[in-house]
């Protein structure tokens, strides 16, 4: 499995962002083991990065690698849909089933 590069954009440390971070870490550990890198970027501290990446909503998770580039917006509270958003739901099964 290729290595995952993930960036999570947040706006300040709130309960919602803490929840998103812990959910994401848990899923990544379970699904990817050590094969991932996660950077948490606080937009309040680095607004120019959000401008460059055109981030509107927070939290926004960007999967930069492996391609295709994907964005997931929200507090990641729905595990199934997060897996779909990261293309992880289809990693062990044929692509055709992903739409179900």
């Amino acid at each position: 499995m290729s290595k995952y590069t993930l960036k999570l954009y947040i706006a300040g440390r709130t309960a919602r962002t803490e929840q998103a971070i812990s959910t994401l870490r848990q899923i990544c550990e379970e699904e990817l083991g050590r094969a991932y890198e996660l950077a948490v970027i606080d937009i309040l501290e680095r607004p120019q990065l959000a401008e460059n990446e055109k981030i509107l909503a927070t939290p926004t998770l960007v999967k930069e690698l492996p391609p295709p580039l994907r964005r997931v917006v929200g507090d990641l509270s729905n595990r199934e849909r997060l897996l779909v958003g990261l293309d992880l739901a289809v990693s062990d099964s044929p692509k055709l089933e992903s739409g179900d």
Partner: peptide, 11 residues
Amino acid sequence: VEIVGDYDFGA
């Protein structure tokens, strides 16, 4: 863009 859960326009 996939929407998963709640969000705001903080960014």
